[in-house]
Amino acid sequence: MIAIVDVCSGNLRSVERALAQVGGDVTVTRDPDVVRKADKVVVPGQGAFGVFMRGLVERDLGAALREAIASGRPYLGICLGLQVLFDESEEQGPCAGLGVIPGTVERLRPGDPALKVPHMGWNRLVQRARDPMLAGLADDAHAYFVHSYHAVPRDLSLRIVEAEHGIPITAAIRKDNLFACQFHPEKSQHVGLQILRNFVEAA
């Protein structure tokens, strides 16, 4: 069973529908014990960093997420679900994150005034490493992004997918069992469904 962790996020249902579409056995939950028993854990996120972290604390989910990551079970973070893995964010803050990945979340400052914030739309995934979660993706695969802040890992080798928005930004990171993406696979048509299928099929 795949637990989709409900932390007051707008894209929960989309993620649920997309995972079900590719054959996932999914349960949306805010119960830390269900998260502890799940074979795989998905943390979707959308909205503001501080609100999300408060939701995690109020629902007593932080420890369960840390345990899931430490347990070696497949873990997927999406959008804010990626950002909250970091030490802290500039958004509404500084605001502390889970601190699983050393690094910070910063406001997007593309430099060129023609480049808009939010970074909204389809951008090419620049794949820096091979990864089972990227299996079946074309070299020029695009995914749907929408965010105004971006995560910068201290160890840039964790950043296995980048996108270009004036500067290279983190599109996905990999650390052991943990894969997290800034883009929205649940809104990225066949590319996103392929990534979710890879997650469903991951051992």
């Binding site: 970074h119 739309g121 389809w122 951008n123 620049v126 928005h165």
Partner: peptide, 8 residues
Amino acid sequence: MTLARRII
């Protein structure tokens, strides 16, 4: 390559 222009 950069952000693609969207067709809606």
